[in-house]
Design a protein around this nucleic acid. Sequence first.
DNA 1: CCATTTATCTGACTAAGGTCAGAGATATGC
DNA 2: GCATATCTCTGACCTTAGTCAGATAAATGG
Lengths: 299, 299
Amino acid sequence: MQDDVATLRRFNLAWSQRTGVLEHSFLGLGRPLAASRLLLEVGSSPDGASVLDLRTRLGLDSGYLSRLLRRLEREGLVLTEPDPADQRRRVASLTEDGRRELREIDRRSDALASSLLMPLTESQRARLAEALRTAELLVRAATLEIGEHPHDDPRVLAAVGRYVDEVADRFSDLDGGFNSPGALVDPGGRYLLALSDGVVVGVGGIRPTPMPDGSVAAEVKRMWVDPSWRGSGLGRRLLEALEQLAASDGHPAVVLDTNRVLGEALSLYTRTGYVEVPRYNDNPHADAWFRKALSPAAG
Amino acid sequence: MQDDVATLRRFNLAWSQRTGVLEHSFLGLGRPLAASRLLLEVGSSPDGASVLDLRTRLGLDSGYLSRLLRRLEREGLVLTEPDPADQRRRVASLTEDGRRELREIDRRSDALASSLLMPLTESQRARLAEALRTAELLVRAATLEIGEHPHDDPRVLAAVGRYVDEVADRFSDLDGGFNSPGALVDPGGRYLLALSDGVVVGVGGIRPTPMPDGSVAAEVKRMWVDPSWRGSGLGRRLLEALEQLAASDGHPAVVLDTNRVLGEALSLYTRTGYVEVPRYNDNPHADAWFRKALSPAAG
DNA sequence: CCATTTATCTGACTAAGGTCAGAGATATGC
DNA sequence: GCATATCTCTGACCTTAGTCAGATAAATGG
C-alpha cells in the first residue's frame, strides 16, 4: 500500500508537470480559465443549460457565475434567455461564434495531446493508451458513488432499459413482457445507482418476494453494469450494497435467479457466499436460483 | 493515433478532476499554493537554493518570488542569507520549522493519495500502480531531452561512472584500466545525455577511431541506459542521435564493439542496420564488432 | 392575495497571482 | 578605476478568482 501511494504521487507529479500546460492552453485564447471552463460546460449540452445547473456543476458562487456569463455574452459567445417554463430561471446556450470557439479549444487540446504522443513509437503509444485506460477505469472505480434513487427516477428507468435491451439480445425469444415501460421497475422495489461523474454506470434493485416456505426474502433484480466497467469489481460492490439495503429492511435472506449462460454473474454469486437452491419462481429464462442468508445484526 | 489522443484527453480530465483536490490541499495549511510550491522547492535541495535558481525552476517573476520569500521568512519557515561566493546572490534554506512544515505537507499528500486508493481491493491497487508506472515511464520517454554536453560535465562523468560500475559487475576480471577517472571519458569524444526532468537517465558518446583499412570511423562508447528506463526505446533513440552526431562530423560510418552476453544490445544493433564485421580493436572484453555506414547527406 | 421561497443579478470587497519599472548593491570586463 | 552587467528588492499596478450582502422579480403555499 505504501508503495502504491508513492507510485501514485510520483505519477501525479510527472503527469501534472507535463499536462499543466494543456490546461493553461485554454488561456492561450485570451480568456481566463474559469470563463473557458464555463464555455465548455454551456456547450456540453446541446440545448443550453440553466444558470442553476451550471452553478451546481461547476460549484461556483451565483454572483461570480453571473459575471462570467455577462463576460461571455459581451464576447458574443453565449446567449441567455429566460426559461419559458419558469421565468425566474435563465438558460444559457452557445451562439454560432461560441460553437466555433469551442471547436477551436478542442482542436488545441487535441494538438497538445498529439504533440505529447508524437515522440513515441506506434507500439509505445498503444501501451500508453492501454495503461491510461486501465488507470482511468480504476481511478473512477475508486471514486464511484453508489446510492439509492426513487424507482421513478428517469436515470433508474434508463439504466434498467439498457439492462433489458441486453437481456433481450441474449434471449431473443424474450420481448412480450418487457415492452411496457411500467413493467421494468417495481414501485415496491428499492433501486441503487452507481454514478461516476454523474453518469450512470450500474444499477441494481431489490424487491420483497414470497418464498415457497411462506417467508419473504429480498430478491435482487435488474442488476446491470456498463460494459466498459466490467471487471472493475463494480458488480460485487453493487451486490454488497443491495445486501445491506435488504438487511436494513429486515429481510432474512437475499435470493436471485439467473441463467447459466451468464458465467461471470454465476461466479460472482458463488464467490460471495450464495448457495444454489431449488427453483422458487416460474421465470422461464432462469435455470439457476441462489440464496444468501443475511446476518440479522447487519444494516 | 486519434484514438490514443482521445484516450489521453479522457484520462487527463478524469485524473485532474480527482487530484486537483490533492494540489489544493496544500492550501489547507492556510498558505497560497505558490508559497507552498516555493517551500517545496526550497526544501528539495538540502543546502538551500539560490534565489536565481528558484526563479528559473519555478518560472516566477523576480519581484513576485521576492515577496513570496519574504512571506515565508515572516512565517519563520525559510532563512535567506547572502551567498559568500557572490554577495549579490542570496541563498534560501529551510529552518527547523520549515522542515517540519514540509513533513506535514508530505504527510497530507500521502493521506490524500491513500484515501484515493482505499476503496480499491488489493489486486486493483496493484493493477492501478502497475498502469501508472507504465504510463509514467512512457510519458517521461515522450518528453525526454537528448542533447550534447561537454566531456568534462560532471553529469557526463557520473553517468559514465554508472556504466563502468555495471560493466565491472558483469566482467569481474575488469578493474585495472577503469580505476583512474580520466580514463572514463575521452576528451576527443562527444557525449550525449538523456535528461528527464533534469535527471540523467542515459548517456552515450562517440570518438574518432582508426580502422584497419586506414579510414577513420566514429566509435560508439559508453552507451548506458538507466535500469528503470530499459524497454522504453531510449537505447535506440540515443543510438540514432549518436549516428546523427557522427554524420554531422563527416564520419563515413559508425562502429562499435560489444559482448554476446549483452543480448538486448546485440539485438538493438542488428535491428537498426548494423552488420557484424571482423575485429577492429584489441578490446579483451569484446567478442563482436559491428559497423553501420552513414549516408553522406545526413547531418 | 399575501408571505415565503427560489433564481438571478449588482455592488462592494478581499486575496491570490502576476507584471513592470526602477533602486541599490555587488561583480566583471576592459 | 570606471562603465556595464547581474542579482535582488520595493513600489505601483493589473487581472483573476472568489465571497457576501442585499435588490429584484417570479413562483408557490396557504
